[in-house]
Structure formats: C-alpha cells, structure tokens
Design a binder for these strands. Structure first.
Length: 201
DNA sequence: GTTCTAGAAC
DNA sequence: GTTCTAGAAC
C-alpha cells in the first residue's frame, strides 16, 4: 500500500526516480557547470564551480570544458590542461592566505567529468556526514593535484586503484588530519574538528 | 553523488 | 531507548 515517502514535498507525485528524467545523478556536475548560481569563474579551458554539498567552509571544483570523464582518460596530452587547473587552484587558495587547502582528485570519483577539488582544511560543514566523506579527503584516496601531474609525466597515465585498495582506504579509521586523535564515530570526529578551528579571513 | 531507514551498536 | 552507520534506490 502506501508507497509515498515524502513529508516535505520532494517526491510525492513523481513516479520517476528521484533524479530529473533528463539526467542520471552521476552527470550532475555537467548541469552545475552551466548553472550561473554554481559558477564561480571560467576561462577558455576550465570552469570553477562551488561544490553543491561542500565538505568544508570553502569547497570548489575545477572542471575542464573538454569532455574528460575521469582520471582514467588522462594521457600526456592533457598535461598542459592539468597544470593550468593546478595554477587556477593555487590562485583560488591564495585568495585566503590564513587558510590551508587540499588540492586534488578522488582516486575513484562518483560524478562524471574530471574535477579538481579545492577544499579548505577545516572540514567544518554539515554536508560532511560519513566515513566515506572523511576518508575520501584525508587518505591516499585523495590524490594531490601535483602528484597526478607528476605521475602522468612519468608513466603516461594514472594507475587505477583496485576495488580492494579503494575499500580498504574507505574503511580506514577516523584519524584527525591535524593531530593524533582517533574518533570512534563521525559525530565525535566532527566535534573534535571544531577544536582545530581558527579565526580566518 | 544523496536520501532514507533497518538494524547494529551503544 | 537512542544514536549511528551501511546498503538499497526499479
């Protein structure tokens, strides 16, 4: 009987899936790239958008306009583009001299279209909820922009992470990225992270 | 990627 | 009894 599952109007009358019929969720970044509300800046090669579910106080994504779906597609011919993306990332980070940022890619990304994360290291956000969120930015699952460039230069491609390696990283203990604190669950980690907050611009 | 929620963990 | 997480989503 009752199959409706909404009490705030999100999915009452639509018999389709929760996504828009025009696109699977994995292509949401392509929509965001064209959305003036998400767009931060752009040039001929790239766009910068705000992450729709920011995992820190400042969280941007830099995406190429060229259709590069993921790290798997990268070859040496993309080095110039990647170096440009890194420069844009560094410039955005430098706008906030009192903060620290992480610049890098998820080894395995859920969303299509290559995207470089520029994320402040406070990780103070209500959108940061799960162990997977945490470990995706604080373990080797997060590959620094400059490492991607160096690996591409050296090997001509980015070596993929196996399913097992990926799962192991995602299941890592909840280690604070700034001290030796180990949290037993996410709420305790998030409370601990507040102790590292400093005044910023 | 997120939402939702059953049942594990406390 | 409440908090928290892991897995389905047709």
């Amino acid at each position: 009987m009752g199959t409706k599952r909404s009490h705030d109007g999100s999915n009452v009358s639509d018999p389709e899936t929760p996504e828009k019929k025009s696109g699977h969720w994995a292509f949401g970044l392509l929509t965001s790239m064209k959305d003036p509300k998400s767009l931060v800046e752009e040039d001929t090669k790239i766009v910068v958008i705000k992450d729709k579910y920011p995992k820190a106080e400042l969280h941007y994504l830099i995406l190429p306009k060229d259709d590069i779906s993921s790290l798997k597609q990268l070859r040496k011919c993309h080095l110039e583009l990647l170096k440009h993306m890194d420069q844009v990332a560094e410039r955005i980070a430098s706008k906030h001299p009192k903060r620290k940022f992480r610049l890098g890619y998820h080894a395995v990304a859920s969303m299509s279209r290559l995207h470089l994360h520029v994320i402040s290291d406070d990780f103070n956000s209500s959108c940061l909820k799960t162990k997977k969120h945490w470990n995706s930015f604080t373990t080797e699952f997060f590959i620094q922009s400059k490492k991607v460039i160096a690996d591409l230069q050296e090997f001509g491609k980015i070596s993929p992470l196996s399913k097992d390696e990926s799962k192991k990283l995602m299941d890592s203990p909840l280690c604070c990225h700034k001290c030796s604190f180990l949290a037993t669950n996410m709420p305790k980690l998030k409370t601990h992270l507040l102790t590292h907050l400093k005044e910023v611009d």
